[in-house]
Amino acid sequence: MSSKLVYRTLRPVLSSSLQFTGLGTGPGIRGHIISHLPTVRFFSSVTSSPASENNQPENPIRTVDGKVISTYWGIPPAKITKPDGSAWKWNCFQPWDSYKPDVSIDVTKHHKPSNFTDKFAYWTVQTLKIPVHLFFQRKHMCHAMLLETVAAVPGMVGGMLLHLKSLRRFEHSGGWIKALLEEAENERMHLMTFIELSQPKWYERAIVFTVQGVFFNAYFLAYVVSPKLAHRITGYLEEEAVNSYTEFLEDIDAGKFENSPAPAIAIDYWRLPRDATLRDVVYVIRADEAHHRDINHYASDIQFKGHELKEAPAPVGYH
């Protein structure tokens, strides 16, 4: 073959405008309209193209020879704007990842332990929360940051192990891989929101580092041994998260905690009004935790009945 440049077709580039429709309050309901530009072809052996140079962020990262990192291999960054024409500033999530939460969910629901496994899971969680409450007491922001770094672990561990199982057995997962990874990502966005409100101190970071390391390995082993136990533990952890955020809301309403303006990342992620406050953020996060509670108790119930998760359609998009 001659030295002619070889073309390859990349996926369509997102247009410079993106609009998404308003959502109802039903779980998993989403809507967005994305228009695509014609497919763009790039030379595989050319490190950048004139067209891509016009689609750069304000402060692009460049190599030592001046080339823009994002277009070094001919892949331009997507340039996305909000419906009002302003630039989309977030790289940690995209507009189609945002949603309007279903806050009508029952936050008082509790799964009553009915067998040894349930009781073991319940009392494990009750035991773990004692030192946490003694340390944080009513320091809600610090408590929330630790809570979210731990809460994002089960979904990732479960999704990862189901992913490997799917590969080993050459079978689908019924959507549960995606559902659990969605849960993990949603919990991570909770943390990203709280980081905007309060930067953790060095000792809080040390606690997170230690707790996450221990919890990840313990949960990994628990999931390998008994997925139904692992999901039940997570269900009870989420119940405690709901209770913690309820206390947070009560202290905000009582004036014990400042109801500051909501950070921009929360407004865009949950599609909140521009004048939203911290209370609005905590309110929707509590609803998310209640949904995670239901997902994990549901997953455990499926397995307690002798079925595999793949046999029941996963509640994908059920925040």
Rank of each mutant, 00 (worst) to 15 (best):
L237C: 06
T234S: 11
K112M: 12
A290H: 05
N54Q: 13
G85V: 01
N217D: 05
G26C: 13
M1C: 02
L237D: 07
T71Y: 08
H190R: 10
G235W: 01
R286H: 06
A179L: 09
V214P: 04
S226E: 03
V224Y: 11
T277C: 08
D253R: 12
I80Y: 00
E311M: 14
C142Y: 08
L191R: 04
G66A: 10
D275N: 14
V242Q: 04
Y219H: 11
V125Q: 09
V211K: 00
G28H: 08
H190E: 10
I34N: 02
L309V: 10
I80S: 06
F116H: 08
H307R: 15
T124H: 03
V64F: 14
H111Y: 07
S52E: 10
M192K: 13
G159W: 06
P131R: 02
G317P: 05
G158V: 01
E171I: 10
S166F: 03
S166G: 12
Q19L: 12
L180H: 05
H307D: 09
A179I: 06
P273Y: 04
L134N: 09
A314H: 04
A230V: 01
K4N: 14
R138L: 04
V6H: 09
E171P: 01
Y318M: 00
K305Q: 15
N55Y: 15
G22A: 15
G306K: 13
S17P: 05
L167F: 10
S260M: 11
F304Y: 08
N217I: 07
R274S: 14
L167A: 13
M156K: 08
K256G: 00
Q126L: 00
A266T: 10
P227R: 06
K109S: 10
S15G: 15
I265G: 05
A314P: 05
P76M: 00
L272Q: 07
D118R: 03
F135E: 02
F43S: 12
S52K: 05
H36P: 03
P12Y: 02
D301L: 15
R41N: 14
V284S: 08
I80D: 01
S17K: 07
L164N: 04
F42E: 12
R138I: 03
W90C: 06
R30V: 07
G28Q: 10
W202Y: 07
N91F: 12
S260D: 02
K139C: 12
K112E: 14
Y298W: 08
M141R: 05
D301M: 14
S260H: 03
T108N: 11
P261T: 02
P27R: 12
T149H: 14
A254H: 11
M160S: 09
D102H: 03
V6A: 13
K178E: 14
F220G: 02
P38S: 13
H297S: 03
L167R: 12
T210W: 13
A218M: 08
G31W: 06
R11K: 13
M145Q: 15
P77H: 01
A290P: 13
L14C: 01
R169V: 03
A51L: 14
S244E: 09
M156W: 05
V211A: 12
D251F: 06
D280A: 05
H292I: 05
F116W: 10
R271H: 10
